[in-house]
């Protein structure tokens, strides 16, 4: 059993690296874009809010697998041909932007309205009020769900095999068909995913505690 793992170990490691890379970029892009969308959603004008609403509604209502498929194989019909890696990143980010938008929205809306009114009374315009007062508090509220999101992202990367990105699950299938040792490889994959995700949630708990410290 360990022979198989030893000879395929390097390939599995490579696949893991792609999984982690894809997850990190998705988390960053999704987090930032989701934040921007949430701003529109909470403070924006009606037509923009409607557009963001529609986008979030559609993206959350369809399985990620189908979204990946449409964006990779459907966009060329409209003239947009994405190569595999940027395409995978773009699609995952778009999906998680919608999810993150909801989380940021919840955080922003959970802040007492009085704060914004008080800021306005002091003569602050919205951007300043956001930067100094609201966003730092929203970040604290978002820390917990953000960690859950990170774990979800890592697990969802297994779906990008549909567009041919050599992340961990796809590499695993390729190795199984070469070596015909499904149990060992699947076991290794399970352990790797668990380690990454469990590590992330521990890290998240530590960050959450640090962020809550000093917050009544």
């Amino acid at each position: 059993m360990f022979d198989t793992l030893r000879e395929s170990g390097w390939l599995l490691l490579e696949g893991t690296m792609w999984t982690i890379l894809l997850s990190l970029v998705t988390l960053l892009l999704g987090g930032v874009m989701g934040f921007l969308l949430a701003l529109i959603r909470v403070y924006g004008v009606w037509p923009l809010r409607a557009v963001v609403d529609a986008y979030v509604y559609v993206v959350r209502g369809i399985p990620l697998l189908l979204l990946l498929f449409f964006m990779y194989y459907g966009l060329p019909y409209m003239g947009i041909d994405l190569p595999t890696l940027p395409g995978g990143i773009a699609v995952m980010s778009l999906y998680f932007t919608a999810l993150m938008c909801e989380i940021w929205r919840g955080a922003l809306q959970s802040l007492p309205r009085g704060q914004l009114e008080a800021a306005r009374a002091l003569g602050m315009r919205l951007p300043l009020a956001l930067t100094i007062i609201l966003v730092p508090q929203a970040v604290r509220a978002v820390a917990g769900p953000l960690v859950n999101m990170a774990v979800l992202i890592v697990k969802s990367t297994s779906l990008v095999s549909i567009i041919g990105l050599s992340e961990l699950t796809m590499v695993g299938h390729e190795i199984i068909e070469r070596t015909f040792k499904p149990f060992e490889i699947l076991g290794a994959i399970a352990v790797i995913y668990f380690s990454i995700c469990y590590g992330l949630s521990r890290l998240g708990k530590a960050i959450e505690e640090k962020v809550q410290y000093g917050n009544p």
């Binding site: 498929f69 194989y73 459907g74 060329p76 041909d81 095999s161 549909i162 567009i163 041919g164 796809m170």
Partner: peptide, 17 residues
């Protein structure tokens, strides 16, 4: 080479990729 799974093989050519 473009590595495709079973559901991707027809769309791979139909989409022009």
């Amino acid at each position: 080479f473009m590595r495709v799974q079973s559901e991707g093989r027809f769309p791979s050519v139909l989409s022009g990729k």
